[in-house]
Amino acid sequence: MMSQVFLAVALAIVLLIFPCLVRALGGPTVLDRIVGVNMIGTKTTVLLLLIGLIYKDLSMFVDIALAYAFLNFIATIGACKFFRRSKQVHLEDDLVTEEEASA
């Protein structure tokens, strides 16, 4: 009975990843993409634990989840630092503005 609940929760989390993916793919700024990817990473940490419960091998998946949490954090910090340094970041994705199009 409980394993079905866990399966439903895992499916719900997978469905919730797709809207984050929309934000990660659709911008509009680079930092929005970082937020989207960061949220996908947090959800994946939980998802790994749920997969461990469903396959009844939690002690193995806990290790993977812990490593995933570490690396997700480091990746976010690194990406933020990188875009802080590069001054020529294109903030908006629709690069052609109206003035440029008419010129």
């Binding site: 700024t29 930092l31 970082i34 937020v35 960061n38 954090f73 976010t76 910090i77 933020c80 630092k81 875009f83 802080r84 001054k87 970041v89 903030l91």
Partner: peptide, 16 residues
């Protein structure tokens, strides 16, 4: 919170 703070700071410096 640290990641949130880092992202806010980066956005401030980049000029969002």
């Amino acid at each position: 919170p640290t990641a949130t703070h880092a992202m806010t700071k980066a956005a401030m410096l980049v000029g969002v």
